[in-house]
Amino acid sequence: MKLTSLKVVASSALALALATGGAQADQEADLIINGDTEITVRTAAPAHLENLSEILSGWTFRTDETQALQMDDFDNPGMIFVDQGLDVWNTVEGSADKSCASCHDGPESLKGLRAELPKWNEDAGKVYTMEMYINDCRTERMGAEAYGWSDKNMVNLTALISVQSRGMPVNVAIDGPAQSTWEQGKEMYYTRYGQLELSCANCHEDNYDNYIRADHLSQGQINGFPTYRLKNAKLNSTHDRFKGCVRDTRAETFKPGSDEFVALELYVASRGNGLSVEAPAVRN
């Protein structure tokens, strides 16, 4: 009798602790998707990163439940949008009567691309993201209209192409002709924007693993983008996430697709060099 009531007290105390303690994460867990794709979620920081010794995927900061959603593609709600991306891939559009499939063998032929983007585009004379390559294909080869940066067809197509590289290490180049863009992105990362005067680094370098209200701050890695967010039940582009973060500093934010966010994407991607491509990741 005594033991039973003690158990009841103990279990309700635990339930209470869970309810008030906010999200619980198993930060030591390893991620293997579908039982066969091993994902590097923690590794040594790349040499250029002066202030961190270890880099961690956002996956390690999420609750057990959210972590589990990414461990099997049948549970990952982001995979529905990858399927929709395949429909986009096969859709003939524009004056040239072409689809992506007309020129490319199949999405798997683009394996490895996600891991090295953004990168310097010699013809264009600037750093290119995946969205920029897609829109060049649409306007120059298909004779179709460019997609908006956050258009669902654009985001779903980038997810389809990204998932081909899942498990490969992020490896964006920061030297050579891309260096000045990378420097621009780095300067932005450490700039304290808005009335709250917060830089990316204030939260994601100096305070990762701390709670800010009920949010468990991550390192702000983008190896899982485009990412399915439980908050809005769709895939989200990197630039949309940047936009929301800068807005939340009570700043005038930047536009998705702006030169500034391209530079920031290059820099933030480089902070994840060595983590695996995870797209489409699942986050809160």
């Binding site: 808005g194 800068v246 807005r247 700043a251 005038e252 934010t253």
Partner: peptide
């Protein structure tokens, strides 16, 4: 401030 905004509107 750097790029002061109109509260949390992003504008």
């Amino acid at each position: 401030y750097v790029r002061p905004g109109d509260a949390y509107t992003g504008k």
